[in-house]
């Protein structure tokens, strides 16, 4: 399952993008072409939900702790079910917070926030409101199905293919370490907020982190 990772600035502007192909034997498998063209838009579409979660007390209530959550949201219409859950949990959420008033849940890592057909989207927020977002490709034969799935006419056939299993702990670690790299970038007084991060040193390190934590090999 290839991944597409981006850091989104405070004005929805991507400041860093990278694709992590998955490794199969000696070959690395990236996203099919039509998904490559689409990925930034899929990410952008998820920002609404991320901003919603950004200001919720328990953005990932019930999400991160119960492992089953990620596996189940397989078919395409659970997309909206997810949103229903969000709005509901937000309502329940505050009440719970009010009554207990102790929040130990972390709220930087948001876990899975959205999905589009077989693709899952996870997110992480920095303290300055930078959004780290990632699209996780589908498992299985990526050559045609995932791409043809979205662009083709026959959405029905493949849409119910189950979503990707996400290893939350590994992913969280990846996000945290990228966060650290980002802070280091920001500490450079000559780097301006929301500027694209173009230095190869950053890119090199992010890719190394991806290999370490999240890139799967078959």
């Amino acid at each position: 399952m290839p991944q597409y990772f981006a850091i989104i600035g405070t004005r929805d502007n991507p400041i860093y993008e990278a694709e992590f192909p998955s490794i199969s034997g000696k070959n690395s498998i990236g996203f099919p072409r039509d998904l490559k063209e689409l990925n930034p838009f899929i990410l952008h579409a998820a920002l609404d939900i991320i901003e919603d979660l950004q200001w919720q007390m328990n953005p990932n209530s019930g999400g991160v702790t119960t492992g089953g959550y990620f596996g189940t949201g397989g078919n395409s219409n659970s997309n909206s079910n997810l949103s229903v859950n969000n709005s509901n949990s937000s309502g329940v959420g505050f009440l719970r917070n009010r009554s207990n008033n102790n929040n130990n849940m972390e709220n930087c890592y948001l876990g899975k926030v959205d999905h589009f057909y077989g693709l899952s989207i996870t997110a992480y927020l920095t303290y300055g409101g930078m959004k780290f977002v990632m699209i996780h490709g589908t498992t299985g034969d990526l050559g045609g199905s995932a791409g043809g799935n979205i662009s083709g006419d026959d959405v029905g056939g493949n849409a119910s293919k189950s979503a990707v299993q996400i290893d939350d702990n590994a992913l969280k670690l990846f996000y945290q370490e990228v966060h650290e790299l980002y802070i280091k970038t920001l500490m450079n007084p000559f780097y301006r907020l929301n500027d694209p991060i173009t230095t190869p040193a950053f890119d090199k390190r992010v890719r190394a982190l991806a290999r370490k934590h999240i890139v799967t090999s078959k």
Binding site: M105, E106, E177
Partner: peptide
């Protein structure tokens, strides 16, 4: 240099 891996829980963003 890499501290993040030692972090088990990020501090909550202040809301």
């Amino acid at each position: 240099a890499d501290l993040a891996k030692h972090i088990t829980k990020m501090r909550r963003r202040d809301l």
